[in-house]
């Protein structure tokens, strides 16, 4: 039985593909993008989170821990990271939800049961399931098995990917997805390596591969002020995309800093400037460059009327 590590399953997901969807967030990512909205996705391991301000000091977790890795210090519980085996018994025991185990192992079968709960809404809306992350291809075996199971169940499948994966694996995914949501960030290889910690050659060749396979692609560009919102980057993006067959959409995602507060909880530093803000005019200017290239561009969160 193939199992995967996921850190969330969000129902009524409305921004990751057509219709009403459930998005499965897989844990682990090869990139270190400093604007990442899901810093909890980076580590490929489960993590125990503790919100001290909620702790009542009831010591239920101390009783519950089979590893005896929790002690009370000054009326608050404290976990010995070395001793913790991430069993999650303390999470279950805590009456106030101060403990959270980020990342749970799921089987494909178990996951499908959960995903099918919203079938009626997928059917009414032309929605389905989206696998996101992290980088879902980092758990390729699980992802492929889950995609196949969704197909058997008649669920529309989208995969939200950075494109950074072995080409064979990437192809296997693309052949089993109805839609690939491809995150394209920085075209310049050096700058890409500098900011994300990884080369972009592989992902660009995988993007080309999508054209060959014929799978529908929606490219999404998170527009980060001062990082990739220069004309040169957008023009380079346009050059690559004009030749891409089956490009069904191109979305510029306006930056927002909502995730900043999450960083410290995962022991991460927010390295971008503190007060970055999306610039509507600039986005519009970038969109018009792409529009001139006859690309199906839209800006994320477009207003109605």
């Amino acid at each position: 039985m193939t199992r995967g590590l996921i850190f969330d399953l969000k129902r009524f997901s409305v921004h990751d593909g057509p219709g009403i969807r459930s998005t499965v967030f897989l844990k682990g990512c090869p990139f270190q993008c400093p604007w990442c909205h899901n810093p909890e996705s980076r580590s490929a391991k489960a993590q125990l989170l503790f919100r001290e301000e909620l702790c009542l000091g009831c010591a239920k977790c101390v009783e519950a821990c089979p590893e005896e890795a929790i002690v009370m210090v000054d009326g608050k519980s404290q976990t010995d990271e070395q001793g913790c085996r991430l069993r999650g018994e303390c999470v279950e025991a805590c009456p106030v939800g101060a403990r959270e185990l980020l990342g749970r192992q799921v089987s494909v079968e178990g996951l499908l049961v959960e995903l099918q709960r919203d079938r009626v809404f997928y059917e009414e809306s032309g929605g389905g399931v989206t696998f996101s992350g992290g980088e879902p291809l980092a758990q390729a075996d699980f992802l492929i098995a889950a995609l196949e199971a969704c197909d058997d169940a008649g669920l529309h499948r989208a995969v939200d990917t950075t494109g950074h994966a072995d080409s064979q694996v990437f192809r296997a995914m693309a052949e089993r997805a109805d839609l690939v949501l491809f995150d394209l960030k920085i075209m310049d290889p050096d700058r890409h390596r500098e900011l994300t910690g990884t080369d972009n050659a592989l992902l660009l060749s995988n993007l080309k591969l999508l054209g060959e396979i014929g799978c529908a692609v929606e490219v999404r560009v998170p527009v980060i002020p001062g990082v990739n919102d220069d004309e040169a980057n957008i023009k380079a993006t346009a050059e690559i995309l004009v030749d891409l067959k089956n490009l069904v959409g191109l979305t510029l995602l306006p930056f927002h800093s909502g995730a900043r507060d999450k960083y410290p909880r995962f022991g991460l530093n927010w390295t971008l400037s503190e007060n970055l803000q999306a610039n509507g005019e600039k986005l519009e200017a970038l969109a018009s460059i792409l529009r001139k290239a006859n690309l199906p561009v839209s800006i994320g969160g477009e207003k109605d009327e």
């Binding site: 009524f12 409305v14 059917e123 809306s125 109605d304």
Partner: peptide, 21 residues
């Protein structure tokens, strides 16, 4: 926010259709 977007109106509409089904 959700209903201010074109796509949001669409999706809430389908949410209601699902409930009625």
């Amino acid at each position: 926010g959700l209903l201010s977007e074109k796509a949001g109106i669409e999706k809430v509409a389908m949410l209601l259709r699902g409930y009625f089904r």
